[in-house]
Amino acid sequence: MAEAHARSRDYAKTVEVLQGIRADAPQWLPNQRYARDIFSRVIERRRTLTPEMRDLANALGSPRDLERQPSLSAENWSTTR
């Protein structure tokens, strides 16, 4: 579902689906490359990230993708994943 929402550019729904997956399987989600790829496409199209998106980014463990986000520099990246 997250992929379908991302393709239709409904990024709020994409994040909502990924957050739901995280709530149901918090240990599983960070190991899913496909989820990181979907989320990376969402954040590439945003100028800034919401607090919820930052939280999800921390859960997914995708600092490489977030380096392009001006509001999330390497100094701000959480090391507790």
Rank of each mutant, 00 (worst) to 15 (best):
A4H: 11
A74I: 04
V17A: 07
I38Q: 09
Q69Y: 08
G61Q: 05
I43L: 09
L60K: 03
R68C: 06
S73P: 01
R7T: 09
R36F: 02
G61K: 03
R9S: 11
R41S: 05
L49Q: 02
E52A: 05
R36D: 00
R46Y: 10
N31A: 14
A25E: 05
L66Y: 02
P26V: 02
G20M: 10
A6F: 03
R9N: 15
I38S: 01
L49W: 01
T14Q: 05
V42S: 08
D65P: 05
D24N: 08
T79S: 15
R54F: 07
V17G: 05
D55V: 10
L72A: 04
R47L: 07
A6C: 08
W28L: 15
D65M: 08
D24V: 14
E16Y: 03
R33W: 03
Q69T: 01
D24T: 13
R41I: 06
A35L: 12
R46L: 15
P30V: 04
T14C: 05
F39Y: 15
Q27A: 15
G61S: 06
D65L: 13
G61N: 14
R54G: 01
S78M: 03
Q32P: 00
K13Q: 13
K13H: 03
E75Q: 15
N31F: 12
A74E: 12
P51H: 08
A4W: 11
S71F: 10
W28T: 11
N76K: 01
N58H: 10
I21Y: 04
L60Y: 00
E44Q: 04
R9C: 04
H5M: 14
S73C: 00
Q32A: 06
R36S: 08
E44F: 12
S40K: 11
R33L: 08
T80E: 15
Y34P: 00
Q27T: 11
Q27C: 04
T80N: 13
R7P: 10
R68G: 14
E16G: 07
R64A: 15
T80L: 12
L18V: 09
Y11S: 10
Q27E: 04
A23I: 01
H5D: 14
A59N: 01
N31C: 11
E52D: 00
Q69W: 11
Y34F: 13
P70S: 14
R46C: 14
R7N: 11
P51I: 06
A12C: 08
A23H: 09
T80P: 10
R64D: 14
S40C: 08
T48P: 01
A74G: 02
L72S: 08
Y34R: 10
E16C: 05
I43C: 11
R47T: 04
L66A: 05
R36N: 07
L18W: 04
N31Y: 11
Q19F: 03
R41K: 06
T48S: 13
P30E: 01
T48K: 13
Q32I: 06
P51T: 05
D10A: 01
Q27H: 06
D37V: 12
D55I: 03
D55N: 15
S73D: 14
E3L: 02
L56P: 02
G20V: 07
Q27L: 15
W77Q: 14
E3Q: 12
F39I: 06
R7W: 12
R9D: 10
R54Q: 00
S62L: 07
L49P: 00
S73W: 08
Y11L: 02
E44Y: 03
T48M: 03
E44T: 09
A6R: 15
